[in-house]
Design a protein around this nucleic acid. Sequence first.
DNA 1: CTGAAAGCGCTTACAG
DNA 2: CTGAAAGCGCTTACAG
Lengths: 339, 339
Amino acid sequence: MATIADVARLAGVSRSTASYALSGKRSISDEVRDRVRAAVSELGYTPNAGARALATSQTRVIGLFAQFLPDEFAPAMLQYMLGVSDTARELGYDILMVTDSDGPAALRRITDSRMVDGVVLLNIAEEDDRLPVLRAAKQPGALVGLPADCTGLDVFDLDFPEAGRLMVSHLAELGHRELVLVSQPRHVVERGGAYVWRLRNAAQEEAERRGVTLHAVHGSSSQPAIGQELSDLLDAHPGATGLLLNNEAAAAALPSVLHARGLNSPEHYSVIGRYSDEFGRTFSLPFSFIESAPDRLGSMAVRQLVRRIESPAGAEEPHVTRLITPELGDRGSTRPPRP
Amino acid sequence: MATIADVARLAGVSRSTASYALSGKRSISDEVRDRVRAAVSELGYTPNAGARALATSQTRVIGLFAQFLPDEFAPAMLQYMLGVSDTARELGYDILMVTDSDGPAALRRITDSRMVDGVVLLNIAEEDDRLPVLRAAKQPGALVGLPADCTGLDVFDLDFPEAGRLMVSHLAELGHRELVLVSQPRHVVERGGAYVWRLRNAAQEEAERRGVTLHAVHGSSSQPAIGQELSDLLDAHPGATGLLLNNEAAAAALPSVLHARGLNSPEHYSVIGRYSDEFGRTFSLPFSFIESAPDRLGSMAVRQLVRRIESPAGAEEPHVTRLITPELGDRGSTRPPRP
DNA sequence: CTGAAAGCGCTTACAG
DNA sequence: CTGAAAGCGCTTACAG
């Protein structure tokens, strides 16, 4: 493999000149620059990443921490990852993907060994045990998901309370008086998935404010189970005319549940889900939905991270917590209830 | 950040002794080893990955190349990735995830810069333009997917021809005389997805050998379209009693298509799909299926790669092409046709 | 059993 | 505008 010494020799210059000619960090005569470039392409020279990292303390690699938990919908996770990965590449960074089950240990290993310039964490829990490690690390960190304590980190998430209010107010204004909200499984909450109760509590409050009845329940995240649960729910609440779904598996199962009962949306039920457009397309879900914007959130996290990595000013800026405003994607699954 | 010089100083030994005490590459007195270990934990020392890579020419990182093409089913891709990632971690390697659309350029960048010790490629095309780059690289490469030319590479794939024969012979032996095989979209083939026609041609031959009629068609990979196509297919071939699905979207759509027509499997149609158990569970598909074993294939690829990376003997072993034998997962969706 | 030194391949002050 | 040299933090022959 060619080194910069080979390039320098072939171009008839010193190693430092070859290096500067390539980095552009000081002015170089056109003639020398051309000779160096010619040598580079003749030798097929690519800088050794380890040597460069050692010299500059920069790896141009971002660590991406994602856990594929059995009770979370894997394809949804993937959307966040691709948002991160695509934006990172666009900004000239590669992605070290970490899926270890022991998050804190893996995080310490990756940051302490200086394999990455910064880190993006997904699956954020309310009290996430990776956060103390991340705060102690020299590298900056960005989270997709809102923990209890955001100090020292940049945080990006959907505004789940606003999503809950939006779902309820939209149906309340159409005249619905009794709604059912199906959330993620209870153990997602127990594991620290705060977005579940953030949406639910806000929905509950909005319902009370508007004098609407809201039945808030947890649903399974696996297919056969959630189908039966949905069916039972419809039986249990015959007066309900609106369904709110903060649970991907429930959204995916609902069409066949309704179908099996000879019902449909919006005729018999107005329905609003919370998932990504991509998810809706994959499962051809006919429901209006609150866009969870995984790719946009992943992209925002990387951009902020890179700003901190690259600019000395950026590194000192106060940390941000940005909650993106939910938007309703209209697929025509809501209308006033039947009289 | 502590360096090995700090550790050596605190332990009162030379840097080389500290290094050897940690690597165990030469014998060290118990007392010195303990002092070094104590210094390491007191300082929280973690070796700098870049420096180590520079000194040893080993990064303990494996490159994972995956493309998320719009017409391939993303969750299925994810299963391969997790198979690779989990096994790599088990063997002490991290994963550099590369999703660039320009595969050859990204591959050259990653290998020439020595960011990785080896590479696993997914989405292999018949004439994959990444393969010449991989063969020219210093690092070993493993493929999940079978290209036209396997020289210089370790290759792992499902035995698709055998899968096709198995599907057909299973239904033929039950007495079915007219089958429909729904494959992936035509442009997957045009892009080089040889597994599509490998399965189809073998199925076709097996059908001829047994005097069974096989209608082989391409289906869409997106949900609303494939549903209509399946429905049209059933109309077009009223005599068909068996459905073979080498198309995830078709498998996911079939239950509701049958349901809408008041039909079910196995009563009206015997059905065999080709997908992973995980996929079947996610979509709660009630069909017997040929396991595509993405996690197993990913794992095999990494193990072989690591063997080549780590043992000088392994590096010289002849390259292998391993096609795993399809197995039928029985979910009771096949039976003899109705008289 | 241990240490002093060279070297991996870069970048970047320092000098001219 | 260019070069000689130091240094990033490791590992590993070489010597004792």
